[in-house]
């Protein structure tokens, strides 16, 4: 026999307790992300790996409310993503990391990851604002846009990022109340607009 409904606890079929049923099939909370040291990079060499950590921290640092990109496991996400997606993306990112070192050594006689935070920001400020950047920096601006997208993508699909965003869904509800009043007010919509 097909166990489509049968495998769900009996309460699932009771009209009075739909939320309880959902709670029963909810996954156990998974373990916290593995510590960064436990991860073996598949794409980055040790120097690149160190640089990526620094960049992730610069891109989305921890603040008073939430952990940052490093604590959220974004370096691991990026390494895995480049390995998984294949194609030219890894070259674009690794090439960009090399440029950061070239530029950092030219200016500060130090690799990017070993420079001071102020020195690092001086270099990033040159490529992080596409509308203000020099035309000659187009390819490094493109690198930084890609890197920013990867960090944002990894951060806001992580447990930490969902809290920061905040993404308040994936929570089974017994009723759906529609758009909450504070949002309606901000949108300039009144009760009449919510009425179907």
């Amino acid at each position: 026999m097909l166990k489509i409904l049968g495998a769900v606890p009996g309460a699932a079929l009771a009209t009075s307790a739909p939320l309880g049923a959902a709670a029963q099939v909810l996954q156990e909370p998974s373990a916290a992300p593995a510590a960064p040291t436990a991860y073996q990079p598949k794409v980055f060499n040790p120097h690149e790996w160190k640089t990526i950590q620094v960049l992730c921290d610069l891109m989305i640092p921890a603040d008073q409310h939430n952990d940052g990109a490093v604590e959220a496991g974004v370096p691991q996400f990026i390494d895995d993503w480049l390995n998984f997606k294949g194609g030219d993306l890894a070259a674009q990112i690794q090439g960009g990391l090399t440029w950061l070192d070239l530029e950092s050594n030219r200016l500060f006689q130090n690799d990017f990851a070993d420079s001071t935070a102020a020195e690092q920001k001086q270099i990033l400020d040159r490529i992080a604002y596409p509308q203000k950047a020099a035309a000659g920096d187009a390819s490094t601006v493109a690198f930084f846009n890609r890197l920013r997208d990867l960090v944002v993508s990894g951060y806001y699909t992580s447990r930490v990022g969902f809290k920061a965003l905040p993404y308040l869904g994936n929570e089974p509800q017994s009723e759906w109340d529609g758009c909450p009043a504070p949002v309606l007010a901000k949108l300039g919509l009144d009760k009449k607009d919510q009425k179907l």
Partner: peptide
Amino acid sequence: PGILGGSERFVGGGY
């Protein structure tokens, strides 16, 4: 994955 991709177009980039 891909959420807020190309955000620089709307918020000018940055970090």
